[in-house]
């Protein structure tokens, strides 16, 4: 068990290391490009050389990588080209905003999709199952940018109940959070619900559920004690992996609703070639994703006694 956890954490460190190498190779390997991106395409050749010299870009690549990694590990991501301030000053508040958005999304997503998935999987092929299954296919089929359009058309332009942007320019307002959360919820609900349904339906056909029924247990107890414990192991992992998905999902939503979050920051940075912001965002995103993956793996071993005791 301890071995398993230390293995997972070891793998997480290796992944982060490999990702940092890849990022470095992709974005910082050729100093000339860096200088162009930082100083702009119309800067003079001379100023570029001076800048490169001042920032240690004439050192060999491996040495530069070492220094770069050291700075990253201590939270020094460099200065944003566009905002001319240290990246960390922009990044952390943006990440916090995204965390708020993610929290509310999960607060609705987890109970609703698990409950509907379990209900559908309990009686495979029933009317309820069909409604939930087809409903979840439809919701997963609408891309986020399309559902933002549909929802805005209804709630913003027609009913005029909700604001069309979520920039929170005059302080935090929950009303502005509703549409972004709803869009993320609609897109992801179907996936989690379908996974839960499949897991539940599979468990319901196993011989040990038959044993439980033929033991004379009340149906409630068959479901709550015997089925759910096994059926929710897989969805747990799926939900943890949704954190990774959410990091992609927020980009579209934050962009559309002008929400000042992490995803919008990354997108703006990439559209403006804001090099150090891209690097910082990518590293942070991978770190969050890998951490959630590691937690999912460790949690899985805890939930599954067949792995826990072997």
């Amino acid at each position: 068990m301890v071995v398993l956890i230390s293995k997972r954490i070891g793998f997480m460190v290796i992944t982060m290391f490999v990702v940092s190498v890849l990022l470095f190779l992709a974005l910082e390997f050729s100093p000339g490009d860096v200088a162009t991106k930082v100083l702009g395409p119309y800067s003079s050749e001379e100023s570029r050389q001076l800048w490169l010299e001042a920032h240690g870009y004439f050192e060999p690549a491996w040495k530069r990588y070492g220094i770069w990694l050291g700075k990253f590990a201590t939270g020094d991501f460099g200065d944003s080209v566009r905002f001319k301030v240290p990246v960390s000053e922009i990044l952390w508040p943006r990440l916090w905003n995204t965390a708020i958005l993610g929290f509310w999304t999960f607060a609705f997503l987890i109970p609703v999709s698990l409950a509907l998935g379990v209900l559908a999987g309990m009686r495979e092929g029933s009317k309820l199952d069909r409604v939930i299954s087809v409903g979840s296919i439809i919701t997963t089929s609408i891309p986020e940018f399309a559902s933002t359009v549909f929802l805005s058309a209804i709630f913003v332009f027609t009913l005029r109940w909700l604001p069309g942007t979520s920039s929170m320019s005059s302080g935090f307002e929950f009303k502005q959070l509703i549409l972004p959360v709803l869009v993320l919820f609609i897109y992801d609900f179907g996936y989690v619900a379908r996974m839960t349904r499949a897991s539940m339906a599979e468990v319901m056909t196993t011989p040990y559920i038959r044993t439980a029924i033929l033991k004379g247990l009340p149906y409630r107890q068959v479901i709550l004690k015997h089925a759910l414990r096994n059926a929710l192991i897989a969805p747990f992992t799926v939900i943890m992996l949704q954190i990774n998905w959410l990091l992609s999902g927020v980009i579209v939503v934050e962009f559309f609703f002008a929400y000042k979050g992490f995803g919008a920051l990354l997108l703006e940075a990439s559209l403006n070639q804001d090099l150090y912001v891209i690097e910082a965002c990518a590293m942070v995103a991978v770190f969050v994703a890998v951490t959630s993956q590691t937690l999912a793996d460790i949690g899985y071993t805890f939930l599954n006694p067949r792995i826990r005791f072997s």
Binding site: P207, T211, L214, G216, P218, H226, N230, I233
Partner: peptide, 24 residues
């Protein structure tokens, strides 16, 4: 039926491993 199953009539199955709940 439920009160009969498991108390008056019991069953023993072919695959004991599958018949037992793996996580209890």
């Amino acid at each position: 039926l439920r009160s009969l199953r498991g108390s008056e009539i019991s069953m023993i199955y072919q695959e004991p491993m599958a018949a037992l709940n793996p996580s209890l």
